[in-house]
Nucleic acid binder design. Structure first.
Length: 260
DNA sequence: ATGTCACGCTGGGCGTGA
């Protein structure tokens, strides 16, 4: 199974790049985050024209997640929303069974600042995600992929000294992410690229991408019965393309999984 | 900390979020 996780920062603004990604990688599933579109305005037709279909969970202006799957592949038991999540109105979780694997696309709250109320919401969301993920894993192969908005280790940010009093690197957030990995879940990128940088996000501002000021905050977490064949971050999609179509501030994480 | 982007609302800049 070729699985891609990508925070697109608006699926309408990013549509040319999404179609480019589907054409280039021909993935079995794309876990999409930050679609930033209401359900009725989701670009189903354009995605259908290239042989894919979207299962989406949408809020409207903010958030929004989706799974893009080849049109001829059966998708079973799609479910939008995370049981026990702090704010069900924020569309941050969608899951479905694809080729016998329970696949989740998740967009964890940013948290803003450690002192902000949204920081506690972020931790509660991670806890609800842990409960649901481990419940699903008891039933079979499971992959959670998305923008987790946490850098697991110091080396997962460009300069840990720049993160004093910042979110994404606190012990509480890292504990929340580590808890997702319990029970044999594999951090797919680290599994096959233990010494690579693996940044997936660079601020649009200050030439951060050019200067290597990135973070590894997008992950694919695979249950133990799935073998990770390869994983890489496709940074081509963090640059303008030849037609001048703009990038997201995240690059796609491309993972190959061997099914049991 | 911020040099950017995308949204809705609205009729072209502003407020919000990241």
């Amino acid at each position: 199974m070729r699985l891609i996780s990508w925070n697109v920062n608006s699926i309408r603004a990013r549509l040319p790049r999404v179609l480019e990604l589907l054409d280039h990688h021909r993935p079995d599933v794309v876990c999409v985050q930050e679609t930033k579109v209401a359900a009725e305005a989701f670009p189903h037709e354009a995605i259908g024209e290239v042989g894919y279909r979207a299962i989406e969970h949408s809020e409207g202006r903010w958030n929004g997640v989706a799974l893009l799957v080849p049109s001829d592949v059966e998708v079973a038991e799609p479910l939008g929303g995370l049981p026990g999540e702090p704010d069900p109105a924020e569309a941050r979780w969608i899951e479905a069974s694809i080729a016998g694997v329970r696949v989740i696309s998740v967009y964890v709250p940013n948290g803003r600042e450690p002192s902000h109320p949204m920081f506690a919401v972020k931790l509660r969301f991670l806890e609800a995600a842990r409960e649901r993920l481990h419940e699903l894993a008891r039933s079979g192969p499971t992959v959670l992929a998305g923008d987790l908005n946490v850098a697991l280790e110091d080396r997962d940010v460009w300069d840990i000294a720049a993160f004093v009093d910042a979110t994404h690197v606190t012990p509480e957030e890292r504990a929340g992410l580590s808890a997702l990995l319990e029970g044999g879940f594999q951090d797919a990128f680290r599994e096959v690229a233990p010494d690579d940088e693996g940044f997936t996000w660079w601020d649009y501002r200050m030439g951060a991408f050019r200067r290597g000021m990135g973070m590894r905050i997008d992950y694919a977490l695979a249950s133990r019965e799935l073998q990770v064949r390869s994983a890489h971050v496709d940074t081509v999609f963090r640059r303008n393309n030849d037609q001048g179509d703009k990038p997201s501030d995240h690059a796609p994480l491309v993972v190959e999984l061997e099914l049991p």
